[in-house]
Amino acid sequence: MARDKAREDYIAPIRRLLVGMIVLALIALFVVWRIDSPRVERLRAQAIDTFVPSFEWAMAPITGAANLVSDFQSYQQLRAQNGDLRRELQQMKAWREAALQLEQENAKLRDLNNVSLDPQLTFITGVVITDSGSPFRQSVLVNVGARDGIVDGWPAMDGIGLVGRIAGVGRETSRVLLLTDTSSRIPVIIQPSGQRAILAGDNTIAPPIEFLENTALVRPGDRVVSSGDGGVFPADLLVGQVVLGTDERLRVRLAADYERLEFLRVLRAQPNELIGDPNGLVGPEGEFFGPAVPNGLNPASLTSNEVGDG
């Protein structure tokens, strides 16, 4: 006796209907995502926010095992590391002296200018919880979210340089899109030539520079910092150094340490004020001191066109 034929006749069409409905629901979700992406992305952020923090207990053994393996490997190289560290320490001491002198000079110059540092750039520190999970997307999840005041678009740095920007905020977690992701575009300035360009990620560790006007003025080793173009990103955040890639393209070696991303600083960068009402800029209406004017004509309410033509 093979299968119960009578039962199959009842169950099979219902099953096919169920599977068809599931497939249609999934395709509908994809179409909705394509049409109205922010709404579905918010749903995705909420789903991740609900589930992922509870996975941390499951990730602990894997992280522990990985740490064990890397510790064992570094134990083998302890002696060589020791020598390297001593040399690096000497270099760091020299740099510290230079930094102290520069700090004093900076303080004196600022005194001269009476310039105050931008108070908008305070930061929130967060811990990296998860990776993006696939080799095609470069993003990480940090454990600070809307309840800590995180807003979409804020830049994220590690101790040294720019790491990415916030793209997606949940209640307790938020997603940082790394500079190496294919959809990451940052406006940058290359010093000392002062040229503006775009840093476009392309899934490699050294993202290329695009829209550079004069490549002859740029050479490998130049410093790359974020320009404040468009007001979407604060200016003067260190991004990295220019290098010449093997494909003869100018790329940027990022200053941030992507191998050991544990703690991120999310900078509170307020967006530029939006100017919606131009009248308020020109001056307040009403107060006008001058000779008597004819009835019904208030010079303060004249537009600049009429005043200019008179």
Binding site: V52, I62, V128, S134, Q138, T180, E259
Partner: peptide, 9 residues
């Protein structure tokens, strides 16, 4: 796949 071990692409 989600564990953040190495962020280099």
């Amino acid at each position: 796949q989600l564990v953040p071990l190495d962020m280099r692409p």
